[in-house]
Design a protein around this nucleic acid. Structure first.
Lengths: 135, 135
DNA sequence: CTGAATGCAAATTGTTTGCATGTTC
DNA sequence: GAACATGCAAACAATTTGCATTCAG
């Protein structure tokens, strides 16, 4: 990030504006109206760079594609088991995951990743409307 | 899993025997000596099927490829930030992540995924030997 | 003998990279 | 004008799928 670029500015703006933890592809689509010639490769490069510099967060989600988050505050995420939607857990966490030992298994512990799993309101309603258990 | 197959039996055996949370590719390589004609597609299909039936666990790790675990006991994993190695945390967990509310953010909470992040002994030693902080 | 499981190869998806060109400092 | 950033297309890695063949019940 030695030089400045318009592409990067706009990518950052769009990630910050977005409330939905967009994937690189989604950022690409959001940016395109403003920069019709931008390429997906540029979006990837800039997202990685912005994350490396701490301007956005990179969310590496189990079994899902990478997503990005413009909200830098310390917060956890919850994922819908049914539709995969990822939401923020608002406010400071209530779950206690704090008292981690300094070492475990001979590892030096640096931190943790916690993701809650649930069913989002939308999917719950759908399930109630049609209580068939497929799969 | 309506019919029986030798391939599936051997895949299950090898996943159980392995202590390293193998990827599909690694399972493929472990199975190959015993079944030289097996294809990677078959390994994928059977791993998914075994996981769906609860005979093995599927580990979807953030930003990494899928891995499988023959150990069905309730345990967490720790991942080395440097080398990506995934180890079991032995014994019942000491970290408290239990008192989850029943609903949060209007989601029905079903559970959580927790992964500890640290530096494994091997990488720590390497870092001490060569204290350059690259990237 | 029927349908599930296999092997093989091709297709898909998400992401990265090489390179010629444009842009910023 | 040197080095970084871009656009484009091709390359890659992990996983999935279509299909003809084999195999289990």
């Amino acid at each position: 990030m030695k030089r400045h670029s318009q592409q990067r500015d706009i990518i950052l703006e769009e990630v910050r504006r977005s409330k939905t933890h967009p994937s690189a592809q989604e950022v690409f689509e959001r940016v395109r109206p403003r920069l019709p010639k931008i390429s997906l490769g540029t979006v990837y490069r800039n997202l990685e760079q912005l994350a490396a510099h701490g301007l956005i967060r990179k969310l590496e989600l189990p079994g899902q594609q990478r997503r990005f988050d413009g909200d830098l505050s310390d917060h956890y995420h919850i994922r819908c088991l049914a539709c995969g939607q990822v939401d923020d857990i608002p406010g400071p966490l209530r779950v206690q995951v704090r008292q981690l030992p300094a070492t475990l298994n001979n590892y030096t512990i640096l931190g943790h990743r916690l993701e809650l799993i649930g069913i989002c309101p939308r999917c719950r309603e759908a399930a109630e409307a049609n209580p068939a258990h497929e799969q």
